[in-house]
Design a protein around this nucleic acid. Structure first.
Lengths: 204, 204
DNA sequence: GTCTATAGCTGGATAGAC
DNA sequence: GTCTATCCAGCTATAGAC
């Protein structure tokens, strides 16, 4: 692999992601990606073999770098309000950069394509794992960790973001994340009210 | 409109929904719908004018009949645990029948198609409205209704179901709704613990 | 490694026979 | 109202010149 090849490959990958963000899975094709990145359509097949292979490779690479950053930022969190604050900030980045949009569109595409679903799952599982471990850290010592399945909760939280991305774009009058953050803040307020008394005595 | 025409139209609409469920938005075309319903492809354009028009019409009609049923079942609910039980049952129907899958795929398709998004919104808003009013009824008298924006919460709940549908199909080892119901049950348990003491004194 | 050209299909949509 | 036949644009993917 020459440097030129590496450069071209990442140009193609970036164009693929941008096309997914702008046109959705239905509007993403070799031609639309090539138009977006201003390169020749045949390059996609030379470097990646097929469209699906390109999309999966690009998305999983992108996902891996993102999750790495977030993992370090989420480490060492030991309370729910703390987690809520960090999660709010990180999720805003994620939604604004439209990383979620890419995943959402690929997941929708995977519905009619089981092979694609299996390959996506690998890159996807680490998101759930990151959220789960952050949640586990935040719940430690609250007594909640015994009552909740942290992995199921993480699954639901990740799902919630996907859903918000999907519906949120529908209504042009409103930022898609407003309802989400409004809900976070409101639930956060409730939680603090409940947790304050619970946490006080049980913490060193 | 003759009876024959009505019959054909509903056959086409049913085939369109089934194709969306099985093949996703990317695999849904005039040809794949016609194959699914075993009729001539040209009929779609005679009766609906375009593919998008067919998809929107079919989805909104289907959505309207569903929401009507659910609305009557959700009426008269006055407590959160009661709401949770009914919601659990109804949402299971909705996920099993794959009504959610249809909406999810259309929403994904709307990403690259603003015109489609606007038309979907009309049929979609009533879902949020139904959930919001059920939630409002359940929260009345708990003191929560003053602290929470019921519409934002409803928005998030609907979004959660979409997200679960999207991710859930990815992992073949697991029923997509397991995590959701597990979470509902766990949060329900927590809520009853918190609400029991709150509700007791404030209710007639 | 990148280009042009093209094969071979499938897409939405329409014309016109019945 | 339903059919066949067809147009043409777009699709994935490959062959072969450079």
């Amino acid at each position: 692999m020459s440097e030129a090849s590496d450069d071209t490959k990442s140009r193609i990958m970036e164009a693929a992601l941008e096309t997914l963000r702008n046109e959705g899975i239905k509007g993403t094709s070799a031609r639309s990606i090539a138009r977006q990145g201003d390169f020749n359509q045949a390059l996609i097949f030379y470097h990646f073999g097929s469209i699906i292979e390109l999309l999966i490779t690009a998305a999983n690479a992108d996902s891996a770098t993102r999750v790495k950053t977030y993992r370090t930022e989420l480490e060492g969190i030991t309370s729910l309000p703390e987690l809520a604050a960090v999660a709010r900030r990180l999720s805003k980045v994620e939604v604004d950069d439209r990383g979620i949009a890419v995943v959402t569109q690929l997941l929708a595409g995977a519905a009619g394509n089981p092979e694609m679903g299996a390959k996506l799952w690998e890159g996807f599982e680490e998101w759930i794992e990151v959220v789960a471990s952050a949640l586990g850290g935040a719940l430690e010592g609250t007594g909640f960790d015994a009552m909740l399945d942290v992995r199921d909760m993480a699954f639901a939280i990740v799902a919630l973001f996907m859903g918000i991305e999907l519906i949120g774009r529908l209504n042009p009058d409103r930022d898609p994340t407003d309802a989400l953050y409004s809900m976070f803040d409101q639930l956060g307020g409730l939680l603090e009210g409940f947790l304050g008394p619970l946490r006080g005595p049980s913490q060193g």
